[in-house]
Design a protein around this nucleic acid. Structure first.
Length: 352
DNA sequence: AACTTAAGCAACCGCGACTTT
DNA sequence: TAAAGTCGCGGTTGCTTAAGT
């Protein structure tokens, strides 16, 4: 069944198309229709192979092609369709009006695939690479506002440099043997709260710095500092210099809507050894400032607050996702959490 | 300002499926 | 029925541009 590749003929041009070539191709197809790609280039006066012409037309020149950034809805559709169809880009494109298979394929490889990997989801099987369902579900319940994301993204040093926060989160999620057991349900409920605290803490610290406060913490310009300020230090500094014109929506550990009984904070602090002292101070600062509504955090959102931005809704996104029983150990999850907390928050690409 | 690196995207290539002779 | 021809798909490459140093 041998067949010579159509582009092997000598003298045919390759590479980027010129505006003149585009014009010729469009004019010909408008007049004669697509017809026979093999004979089209010759008839249209193009020194190209038919394959190249077809590609140029279907991927770029076709009048019904939609240009510009993929919408959140389109991205959701791609993920869902891919979970069902796999790498059948043409089949996926057929369900997304105005988008080409090539465009979807490129977008998948450069954006979606990376994001799924960051979230611990295998982009091929759409299953978690570890058993992260317990992490992803509460993360999905937290809807960062644009202000939240701006705060986190502008953070110097980055969020990952806050060992106290990360350690607390890891301890809570791993349920270390030395600590009182923390139920899976509680762990799921705690993650959004931890993320909220991160945003609030950082925001408070930044307000303090902006106010030019003389405080007990090192200056924020610590990119190269091997000992970045602790959350506690930020909190202490911020508590002394709270602006009065902003309101924090929620600075308390989750109650209604999140947990069905009060948090046992001392037990959690015990779980967060060896930095329990720092964390206890930090946490008490956080919780005590929760009721006065004078604390800082211009955009800390609660699950019930309305958010102006598209929401990362895993219940929709993962509709066709199979959460297999990964069987990862709690240490695995803790290690992964240490590494990926900040990345789990990186949903800024969903912002328009 | 110059250089390096990374990201995005258009285009190419090889192959398989389908159609025609 | 088999060879030849055509088309379309998916993987990959390489160019361009933006961002970082």
């Amino acid at each position: 069944m041998g067949r010579a590749p159509c582009c092997e003929r000598s003298g045919l041009k390759k590479g980027p198309w010129t505006p003149e070539e585009d014009e010729k191709l469009v004019a010909y197809i408008k007049k004669h229709g697509q017809g026979n790609w093999r004979t089209l280039p010759k008839n249209a006066g193009l020194a190209r192979c038919g394959k190249s012409c077809r590609l140029r037309w279907t991927n770029y020149l076709r009048p019904d092609i939609k240009r510009g950034r993929f919408s959140f809805e389109e991205e959701e559709a791609i993920i869902q369709l891919h979970s069902i169809l796999g790498n059948k880009w043409s089949a996926i494109a057929a369900r997304l009006p105005g988008r080409t298979d090539n465009e979807i394929k490129n977008y998948w490889n450069t954006h979606i695939r990376k994001r799924l990997l960051r979230m611990g989801i295998d982009p091929v099987t759409h299953a978690p690479r570890l058993d992260l369902s317990a992490l992803l579900k509460p993360a999905a319940a937290y809807y960062p506002t644009q202000a939240d994301l701006d705060t986190l993204r502008a953070l110097e040093p980055p969020l990952a440099s806050y060992p106290d926060l990360l350690r607390l989160a890891s301890a809570l999620l791993s349920g270390r043997p030395a600590a009182p057991a923390i139920g899976e349900h509680r762990q799921q409920q705690l993650l959004p709260w931890i993320l909220q605290q991160a945003v609030a803490s950082i925001s408070m610290a930044q307000h303090a710095v902006a106010a030019g406060a003389a405080c007990q913490m090192p200056p924020p310009d610590l990119v190269h500092n091997t000992n970045p300020p602790t959350v506690q230090q930020h909190q202490l500094a911020a508590a002394q210099h709270q602006p009065q014109d902003v309101v924090c929506h929620s600075m308390q550990p989750p109650t209604a809507g999140y947990v069905d009984s009060p948090l046992d904070v001392p037990a959690l602090m015990q779980a967060a050894q060896p930095d329990a002292t720092n964390l206890q101070q930090w946490n008490s600062t956080v919780t005590s400032s929760g009721n006065n509504h004078n604390s800082v955090g211009s955009g800390v959102s609660t699950p019930t607050s309305s958010s102006p931005v598209p929401r990362l809704d895993h219940s929709t996104t993962c509709v066709a996702t199979t959460f297999g029983g990964g069987g990862a150990s709690t240490d695995d999850v803790a290690a992964l959490f240490d590494m990926q907390l900040s990345e789990l928050l990186d949903v800024s690409d969903y912002m328009l």
